[in-house]
Write a protein that binds this DNA or RNA. Sequence first.
DNA 1: GTCTATATAGAGATAGAC
DNA 2: GTCTATCTCTATATAGAC
Lengths: 213, 213
Amino acid sequence: MEDDTRQRLLDAAEALFAEHGFVETSLRAITTRARANLAAVHYHFGSKDELLRAVFTRRLKVLNEERLARLAALETGGPVTVEAVLTAFIEPSLRLRRAGVQGERFTRLLGRAQIDASEALRDFLRDQYTPVLERFQRTLGRTLPQLQPEELRWRLYFTLGVLSFTYAGARLPQMPFAARVAGDEEWLLRQLIQFLAVGLRAPPVGEKTEEAA
Amino acid sequence: MEDDTRQRLLDAAEALFAEHGFVETSLRAITTRARANLAAVHYHFGSKDELLRAVFTRRLKVLNEERLARLAALETGGPVTVEAVLTAFIEPSLRLRRAGVQGERFTRLLGRAQIDASEALRDFLRDQYTPVLERFQRTLGRTLPQLQPEELRWRLYFTLGVLSFTYAGARLPQMPFAARVAGDEEWLLRQLIQFLAVGLRAPPVGEKTEEAA
DNA sequence: GTCTATATAGAGATAGAC
DNA sequence: GTCTATCTCTATATAGAC
């Protein structure tokens, strides 16, 4: 148990942060689950905040790179459909879920973070997401030229809302099924694409009646 | 300052919980903002948890009653459209936002709670939401008979995801606009209805068929 | 009802032996 | 790298004077 303590700490933190949230999870709970000593966290990561960032960087970088790669591959083949763009964005994250319980936990954490995140983490996530979102927004804008930029941004915002909510596994009354999504990612993907694609493609609403301050 | 201390405590708690989250907000921060003594929280509410529940009950009960009333009014007039059902659900909460900064804070808290909530609060919210969601699900099922129940539940789930995310005011890179929605609720309502209605009405995905529109 | 003072518990972080 | 022991801070909660 030399340096794979580091990995066990990351795994334990990922699971507990995803399940209970960052503040609600104590370092003691993490080290207990990881069968490590309390001081190990500070030795390997320096602080609880750094540990959280490490949990994200471990998987987020490759995830977003895969998204960009898929989108780039798509655009070499002429005009793209909304469905294809959505798939390029969603499939990599759903593959994480399919990959096992660790990946599923990470997407849960990712979903929570979009709403939960503290100021510091928000900056971190913004740096990670900005290039990806800008890229997808540009591509979608070309695919949906009838939409005004602000209207497109709103629909992309709604889209990310659906994804964050679903990944976070928000449990709603009469809908305990959200927790047992694992194992049917194919069906979930089709449901997501179907719902989101028609929403993005809907006719524009049109002008704003008045400008917000 | 007799018993409107109670109101000031609720206002301060609502604002701080919505902005920073439940665990991240200390009673000291609340009582400072409310210009009240620390012990006042325990005198008026008993505990921090009870204070949180009181913040919710103050507005949630009447909100959900209004939703049910609108839906009932709708159904006396023959067949209903998806748009009308969505409006019956969304408009009351958007009216809260329009009503002022307090209402806007509450919807933000409500959005966060759908993902954030601890086990105890989740039970509380489930009790509050179950009758409303069941009712809307039944009405939507009659309006969209082509959808299998599970497919309908997913689409309702996505719908609530969009609403929670939007109310929570999740800030995304390149999308700082979410915070300044206040002041243009009419436009936001039309955007929401447009996006969600077509999603709910989309052709069923079905069992094993593969299809692109 | 409102205040001061304090009890009690738990958190993150660190020093230093091994 | 890992451990024990401990520092320091802040939290919720409560007792009791006024």
